[in-house]
Computed example of a mutant assay.
Amino acid sequence: MTGLKRFFASPARLFWALQSIGWLGYFSLHYLAAMGHGKPWDYVWVSAAATAIGFGVTSLLRLGYRAIWHLPTGRMIAAACLLLTLATAIYSLTYAEAVFRWCFECRPESLLGYIGYFGSALYVMLSWSGLYFGIKFSREIAHERENALRANATAHEAQLKMLRYQLNPHFLFNTLNAISTLVLDNQNATANRMVTGLSAFLRHSLDSDPMLRVTLEEELEALSRYLGIEQIRFGERLRVVIDASPAARRALVPSLMLQPLIENCIKHAISRRIEGGTVAVRATVVDDCLRIRVEDDGPGLPEECHGNGNGVGLANTRERLKVLYGAKQGVNVRTRDAAEGGGVEVALHLPYETRSEA
């Protein structure tokens, strides 16, 4: 089946296949109609001649249609009508000549008879032209749709890569500044660990394909690289809790999806408080839906940001998930009450899918 589709992918092959099948069908109908009207068996030569003439005339007509295809619509219609009239005249004359050679007494005695032959030929040529333009227009539409889908997919891929590679300059600045401070304080071993961690995180960040998904387990491992750098910076001020069920760890998620959310927690809930705070990632699977919550115990959202959150990291996460999952995903941001420990919760809802299912 695939080989057949590949064979007919060529417009020329498709044309000649349909041309041959169509005129063979015309030959069968023409001869059967003649038999139904009591013609002798040797009338087959008239049917064969009519078919051969039609095949040749329409093959030449195709060349004419191809030549006028890219003209403006009005000029193309006028040129097509002219070509159709010329092809009909040629076909009707040659077809009539073939009939008259077989049956001389069949020659019309008046002009109306010749007009009848012309009308019959016009019907055949008009039907052929309608099929030709219909198939050609449908192929053009399919080609344009394919190009549009390809362009849309390319745009989505570029958009995902742009969103994925927007590293927060504050993170890089703060990390490099911390490394500089450690070097000045002669804490070279700690500075070296931070440089190594930063290098590993950036390499993983830039090498991972934003179009591919990874398991949540792999995502948490990548997150640990980032948190390792931040814990060197903040020490005991940064406390991390990871609570993900085994089923949730097998779920597929976009690569480095959690890093910008954790970065927001550290920026707004940890770095601004002397006592630091706790950042938690919790993941469960409920009714074929992967639910991930990123929480902190900081001061919460400003009043004007309730319900949607702000920041480049959160906006990028929303956009990435929207591009990848459409309406099947959800991102909710809220301030937790005192009974829950305060702070902000970002809840992600994604379709649950594992690598084996994908």
Rank of each mutant, 00 (worst) to 15 (best):
Q329G: 09
E340T: 09
F201C: 02
N316S: 08
F133K: 04
L202V: 15
A269I: 14
S255E: 04
E345Y: 00
G326V: 07
G330R: 14
S208G: 08
D297L: 08
A247Y: 07
R145D: 11
G313F: 00
T284L: 09
S10M: 01
K161W: 11
R318W: 12
E236V: 12
G64K: 07
A155H: 10
R13Q: 10
L167W: 06
L32E: 13
H268S: 10
N316K: 01
R320P: 00
I292F: 02
R272T: 15
E275Y: 01
Y352V: 05
W102Q: 10
N168I: 01
I141H: 13
H349F: 13
F55P: 00
L261E: 03
Q329K: 11
L258G: 08
L71H: 07
I262T: 03
E217A: 15
E146M: 07
E319P: 08
P254V: 05
E303M: 10
A79S: 14
R145A: 07
A247S: 13
F171Y: 13
L61W: 03
A153M: 11
L63Q: 09
W128T: 02
L324K: 10
K328D: 14
G116R: 04
L86I: 15
Y114C: 07
Y26Q: 00
Q231D: 00
S120R: 12
A158L: 15
F100A: 00
G298C: 07
E340F: 09
P254H: 08
L202C: 13
A79I: 08
L71M: 13
V214K: 03
A79P: 07
I115W: 10
A347C: 14
Q19D: 11
K5T: 04
E353G: 06
W16P: 04
P40D: 07
L18R: 01
A283P: 05
V333L: 03
L14V: 10
L182T: 01
V195P: 00
I90C: 11
Y132R: 06
R139L: 15
I53C: 06
E357Y: 10
P299M: 12
S205H: 11
L18H: 01
M257K: 00
A280W: 09
P260Y: 05
S20K: 02
A347D: 11
Q19M: 12
K267D: 05
S10P: 02
R318F: 13
S129K: 04
L32T: 08
G22A: 15
E219A: 02
G277H: 05
N316T: 05
R164A: 14
M76P: 00
L29F: 13
R150I: 06
G25S: 04
E109P: 07
L206Y: 14
K322S: 04
T354E: 00
V195K: 07
T284N: 09
A269D: 12
A98Y: 10
P260A: 05
I274T: 12
A49G: 01
G235L: 01
G311Q: 07
D296P: 09
R139S: 15
A9L: 14
Y325E: 04
F137Y: 09
A269M: 13
L301P: 01
A347K: 11
G342M: 12
